[in-house]
């Protein structure tokens, strides 16, 4: 088999060349509509400094749009995923979730992108936002796997290249890491006015790409006014009893739990094993919404949950 390896390597390379031939040489930036060369590597950018930061690149965007993305490269606060140090999280007492990670800082450009999608309804931006969520999702998953020593199913054909076996390492990691993906619900009134729930769309997009199960576990009981007009304290009070569990949530979680641990050895079942849940939302402001969701989820069934939050933007 070892003899074949160089050959297969070449095959893989030629495959990617073929793919690049199939791709049109020029396309239009999905955001600003300017025609551009699809850029896959940051080294090809006119300004080489972009490559130094090793920031993700969204291939469907032109260089200047890619540059305007406010990626969170260094997570300074390990709890809320902020790019700067924060004191809020030290005060945290009734923590419902373990940590939050956000893909981008909520600056004016990101705000306008989200507004175009969420309020103006430009749903063609949806895959783009999911694209932007993906790097942080991957990072989060990898981090969890190494921290918690999660066992990932090994590759079956060691010597076959992934492109031939269809093995997607990240998919396997994600499947091993996450038991279920869920999202922050919006009120029915908002849904009918907006036409969609942005958190649900982001979660569904991510789950589809990684083959993860997704479920609606929560309902929003009250329709609150816009969060941005309130003080921090008001917000915290306001979001306390905002959600209830979906009627079928407990049963669903139980069935996932039994599915997961029915085949495990008695050694593991004796220990109380948690379910890892990924809660997705579009924006993390104070964390009160996520926390309120988390508390509701914990209370809805007897199963221990480990809740992680993934948001598109951190304000």
């Amino acid at each position: 088999m070892a003899v074949l390896e160089p050959f297969l390597k070449q095959l893989k390379q030629s495959g990617s060349i073929m793919f690049s031939l199939l791709r049109p040489a020029y396309s239009n930036c999905r955001l600003c509509g300017r025609s551009m060369k699809p850029i896959v590597r940051a080294e090809t950018y006119a300004d080489a400094s972009y490559a130094r930061y090793q920031l993700p690149i969204i291939p469907e965007l032109c260089e200047s749009c890619n540059r305007s993305i406010a990626w969170i490269k260094d997570v300074r606060c390990l709890i809320c995923g902020r790019a700067v140090h924060c004191d809020d999280c030290i005060r945290r007492v009734d923590a419902g979730f373990i940590w939050n990670r956000s893909a981008v800082r909520y600056d004016s450009v990101m705000r306008s992108w989200l507004a175009n999608y969420k309020y103006q309804g430009q749903e063609h931006l949806e895959p783009l936002l999911i694209d932007m969520l993906e790097p942080m999702f991957k990072q989060m998953t990898t981090e969890l796997i190494s921290r918690l020593n999660i066992k990932v199913k090994p590759r079956r054909y060691k010597y076959m290249p992934d492109i031939l076996t269809g093995f997607d390492q990240m998919k396997h990691h994600a499947a091993a890491c996450w038991d279920i993906v869920t999202y922050v619900p919006i009120s029915e009134e908002r849904a009918s006015e907006r036409g969609f729930n942005q958190a649900q769309r982001l979660a569904a997009g991510l789950a589809r790409r990684y083959g993860l199960p997704i479920a609606s576990l929560l309902l929003r009981t009250r329709h609150t006014t816009r969060q941005s007009f309130k003080t921090r304290l008001e917000r915290l009070r306001d979001t306390r009893m905002l959600f209830t569990a979906e009627p079928a949530a407990a049963a669903l979680l139980t069935s996932i739990y039994t599915d997961k641990y029915s085949h495990a050895s008695t050694f593991f079942t004796l220990e109380k094993q948690p379910l890892r849940v990924l809660l997705v939302d579009d924006i993390y402001t104070t964390g009160s919404t996520a926390n309120s969701c988390a508390i509701t989820l914990h209370a809805c069934s007897g199963i221990t949950l480990e809740l992680y939050v993934l948001t598109w933007a951190r304000s």
Binding site: Q120, G121, E123, H124, A191, S192, E193, R194, G195, F196
Partner: peptide
């Protein structure tokens, strides 16, 4: 562009040409 719509529960078209002036579904 047709997307699933929470307001009517169907696949529902919206107009991309005039979306800057509010979405017409």
């Amino acid at each position: 562009r047709r997307t699933p719509c929470a307001a009517c529960g169907r696949m529902c078209a919206y107009c991309e040409a005039c979306i800057g002036m509010g979405r017409a579904r």
